[in-house]
Design a protein around this nucleic acid. Structure first.
Lengths: 361, 361
DNA sequence: CTGAAAGCGCTAACAT
DNA sequence: ATGTTAGCGCTTTCAG
């Protein structure tokens, strides 16, 4: 591996100047700068991440923690974050919690503490107070996406408003008997979104003066089959069958559409269906949905971190954050930088396709 | 951050002993060992990755390069690799090539050269000779999964045999008019699997003495819609319609199943369909398929790398690898360690479900 | 604007 | 089995 002194020699400057020229910190004459870059290029020199990290305290690496990857949403977020980070010369080290409790503990007790990362992005996570404490003890920027993080600034879509929007769409079409397929209680442990989404559905009904009927609210597991099973329950009733179904995710909505077909119901004349997510296959099924944009969300949140890192000034008073945390109070912003408050709500969009229409008269 | 000397002090030993006790290299008395661990735990000490890497040359980090993440297969492989690595205390730094040519160049020209990783896992990639050269110049273990890598040992399923197996299943059921939905030429640039899979289909037909009819071979793009469109072409013909379809992926197979339903054909009595992949939703659709196991593949390949890293001895003679590479010859094993040859073929399994049956008499 | 030199926090000989 | 010590390759004062 060619080192910095070889570059220095070739460019006829000191190693200090090479470092400055290549990292862009400190003054370097334009000519010198060019010579250094030229020399580095010719030699194929790339700084050693470890040495640079040790000397500077900056790793140019961001840790991204996800509950699992095998889900469109998380994969897309990571991909988005990745591309934003990569553009700025940051690497992305992935931590996955799907390996069970041990793996999870390891991530929070060891891996994240190794000083391998400058910042942490926590995606779709619900942290325990201990885990949040560990994260805080890093004294590094941490931001969350799509999960409630105690004491950590977090972004996400407004799940409640999103489902409400879908439901309102159906109501505005004239539907009054609207079923709901949401998450079962199990899922509420990891994400609170099931609850939030259900509330959004109820909000819309209530506001429109439609009575809530728990009999046409079903829990499922966010899979195709789950949505399909739930829909069959909803649609199988001989009378007073819903004319529309709001599903808490696109995948479940598609399951519902397939269920309707199996039962000989026509979409949308016999049944309207809405989803939430905006997955690529939604278009194929003509699914009306409230789309969110995970790749953009990932980019956005990564960019936020990059900005913080760039403007990083000083640590806050040593004990403020943890003290607040112990009291169970989530301060508005607990990151090392006193940046502007985060825009909490990420955009969603109602996409009307062929799965919704006026109910039969 | 608490450092190694604080631990040394507390355990009343030297820093060298702390290092040995914690890393497990070199002799340490059992009692000392315990004291050190205890002290480290009490202080919440974790080695600094950067310092350790600089001093030892080992980063305990593996780079994983994927073309993109937004596909079941890649996400599952990464998840599998992740868990194996994590169990052994390795981190996983992800490099994503989906950002276009610039991103791709950056990965090979800078990011991988930063000495941030001990080894590289290249998934589903077809590298240019330059890229392969860069990888080689790292002088680090590199293994590929599911993509032809010039000069790099690579594992993968036998795509040709897999599709052949599916086709043979249909033939054994009595089908003789069997259509094929594969990848279009565009896709062949990145993965060669479309071609290989098509050859497998033809192999089976030829061996059974069935004539190949290019009119019932269709290219598609590995999406639901692509499979659906292609199937409609195949099934729309008024006469001499295939009684079975082999699809080169589960997603396309599902597209075909939905196409059949739309056309009023019954599965499997009017049409049998097979896929390839073993995606979770396959079961819901009753899809007969040849399953592969990406998570296990990822684990396997990660484990391979870990073993190499553990047994790492010496670099091979400086120029052997690159010389061979320049000649365009792919040696059996070009990794620094002269390990046993890799088992190239990863397992697949025919899973028979409800989408296949004997053709109507 | 550039150079000299002191580390960053750890590991690995080499001693003992 | 444990301690001493010299770096690992860079960044960053501090001078000039």
């Amino acid at each position: 591996m060619v080192g910095i002194d070889e570059v220095a020699e070739r460019a006829r400057v000191s190693t200090a100047t090479v470092s400055r020229a290549l990292s862009g910190r400190g003054y370097v004459a334009e000519g010198t700068r060019a010579r250094v870059h030229e020399a580095a290029r010719e030699l194929g020199y790339v700084v050693s991440a470890g040495a640079s990290a040790l000397a500077s305290g900056r790793t140019r690496n961001v840790g991204v923690v996800v509950p699992f990857l095998s889900h469109w949403f998380f994969a897309a977020v990571v991909e988005g974050a990745q591309s934003a980070l990569q553009e700025h010369g940051y690497d992305l080290t992935l931590y996955n919690l799907s390996g069970g409790a041990d793996a999870r503990a390891r991530v929070f007790d060891d891996l994240l503490l190794r000083q391998r990362v400058d910042a942490v992005l926590a995606i779709g996570l619900e942290l325990t107070p201990e885990e949040a404490g560990r994260l805080h003890s890093l004294r590094k920027p941490v931001v969350g996406l799509g999960g409630p993080l105690p004491g950590v600034p977090a972004l996400g879509i407004d799940d409640r408003a999103a489902v409400r929007l879908a439901t309102e769409h159906l109501i505005s079409l004239g539907h009054e008997r609207i079923g709901y397929i949401g998450g079962s209680a199990d899922f509420d442990l990891d994400f609170h979104l099931p609850t939030m989404r259900q509330l959004g559905y109820r909000d819309a009904l209530t506001e429109a003066g439609i009575e809530i009927d728990p009999k046409i609210e079903r829990g499922a597991d966010f899979t195709l089959r789950g949505g399909n099973d739930a829909a069959k329950q909803l649609l199988g009733a001989p009378r007073n069958r819903p004319t529309a179904i709001v599903a808490a995710s696109d995948v479940m909505a598609i399951g519902a559409i397939l269920a309707a077909r199996e039962l000989g119901l026509n979409i949308p004349s016999d049944l309207s269906v809405t989803g939430l997510d905006g997955i690529p296959d939604g278009e194929f099924f003509g699914l009306t949905t409230v789309a969110q944009y995970p790749a953009e969300q990932g980019r956005h949140v990564a960019q936020l971190l990059i900005d913080r890192l760039a403007g990083l000034v000083e640590d806050p008073a040593p004990d403020t954050a943890s003290a607040r945390l112990e009291n169970g109070v989530a301060p508005a912003a607990t990151s090392p930088t006193a940046g502007p408050a985060l825009a909490r709500e990420l955009p969603v969009e109602l996409i009307v396709r062929e799965s919704t229409a006026r109910p039969r008269p």
